[in-house]
Each structure stands twice: as structure tokens, then as C-alpha cells.
Amino acid sequence: MSAVQEALPAVRGSRDATVRRFALTDAIFHAVTRAAAILVLVLLGGVAISLFAGSWQALSTFGFSFVTSESWNPVTEKFGALAPIYGTIITSAIAILIAVPLGIGIAIFLTELCPRPLRRPIGMAVELLAGIPSIIYGIWGLFVLAPFLQTTVQPFIISVFHGIPGLNSLFAGPPYGIGLLTSAMILAIMVLPFITSITKDVFDTVPPVLKESAYGIGCTTWEVTRRVVIPYTRIGIMGGVMLGLGRALGETMAVTFVIGNAHRISTSLFAPATTISATIANEFTEAVGDLYTSSLVALGLILFVITFLILAIARYMLMRIDARTGA
């Protein structure tokens, strides 16, 4: 049903009535979409309020030291969130560092290089990575990836970087197989389909005429991608990265299996660590004391704040880029 067909009776019948009807339906549609947008706000508001209420006891007991203390002791009921905050930021940052170039690379491959008949199967294969339950990533990471890293990759890296100051502390300690780096790798695999699918979809929306004119003046495929496609789709790619980052920051089940859940801050990427969501998932179901439970909820609140800060920084960076390119 095309717009023309719907507009036709307007010409034939009473014009005013039709215009009024259109205006009414439009107003309704407008109001409905607006209500949906506000509902999103209300939902988050509700989540935030329940988080605030739940974490109040912990925050009022520990005050600011909750975010500066590394200690996490359920026995003496002394709780500090520094170690999970550190683990969350480091694992997500490494995951994004790995996944963004990979995702964009795959998207370029799919839109520019891949033979047509293979595009759909490969694209779908990557999307499939998003369909694997996160607990399976966890079990796979624990039973397959961790032993592999433990017996081959980690001893090798430790011996290579052994004598180099700085790097040797980054890759120090006994190779347990599980730890910060393993979690970051699992997270990278998990967010890859989010970044790839979105990037591929936005690449497909670039008007062919833009690309053709660039090719027309003799640009190489890479130059067209770098100078035309990526700038045109920048915001869309950013959306994909945000989806991925959001998943990485909040991912629970997979990380709990491979992070080692140690409330310690270690410079070594091989050391066991913990993240906010892993701590909540690991300990919430067994926590009995009110203060203990409240501290776990407060961790959730902190994750909200971290996400908020990261998003604000990302938006600021986007604005800077826009200002520089004059877009």
C-alpha cells in the first residue's frame, strides 16, 4: 500500500476532513512513540531507584571508602569496590580493543571483498556468535580456552617478557589459565557479532553514488572505506561499539567462569581478578547478611555510574570529531 494510494481519497472526498483525520492519526502516532520513549526513561528510573534503595545501607555505612577500598571481606563485613571496578574497566577495555578492529575488518570484508554468494553465510555465521548462550562461553572458556592458554600461550609469553621491565609485571605470575586476559578474550568474542552486524548494516546504507564517485577519481578500496564509508557511518559504528561495550560491561555468566573472582588488584593480566557483574552473580545468591546484600547491590549502582561516565566521554569525543571535520 503506497502513500499515493492513501492520499488519493483526499483529493476526491472532503479535503478538510481528510487533512484533519491525517493530523489526528499523526498526532496519535506521535504521542504513542513519545510515550514509548518516556517508558524507556521510566524503566531506567525504576531500576535506578531500586538500586539506590538497595544500596543505601552499604553506601551510608562505608561512605566514599566503598569505592576506594580494595578489601572485600564477608566475614568481617568490610566491603570495598575498587577491585571489581578495576577488573570491569580493564576487561571491557581490552575486549573492545580486540573486537572493534576485528569487527570493522569483518564488516569491510563482507561489504567490499567477499564474493557475493558467500556474503550471507559468513555474515550469518558471525551473527551466530551472538546466539550462543553466555554460560556456554563460560564453560568453553573454562574447559577449552583456559587449559590451552595455561599450557601453551601463557608460559611462552611469560618467558618472552621475563627480562623486560614493565612488560614482565604485565605478564607475571603462575599461569592459571583463567584471569583478566582470558575474560577479556571471551568478552571480545561475545561482543564481536554485535559490532560486526551493526557495522555491516550501516556500511550497506552508504549511498552507492558516494562510493562510486570516490572510485571514479581513482581511490583504492581502502581509501574509499577509510575516507568515505567510515566517516559516513561513524555514528552507526559508534552505536555498534556501544552495544558491544554495554554487553561487555554487564556480561555476567561467561566472565564468572574465567575471571578467577579474586578481590585483588594485580598489574599482571594473567592474575585472577573480578568484575562487578561477576561478583554480583557469584555471591548474591549465597549472601545472607543485609549489609553484604546491600554492598552487592551498590556494586550494581557503581556499574551504572561507570557506564554513564564512559558514555559521556564517548559522546564528548564524537562531538569533538564532528567539530573538527565541520560536519
Binding site: S71, P74, G179, G260, N261, H263
Partner: peptide
């Protein structure tokens, strides 16, 4: 759950 002095945690 306790504050373990050493070792690695497994789920």
C-alpha cells in the same frame, strides 16, 4: 565467601 589470602577462584 571469605577474603582468600591466596589462590585462584573457580566457579
Amino acid at each position: 565467601a571469605v577474603e582468600w589470602p591466596t589462590g585462584v577462584g573457580a566457579k
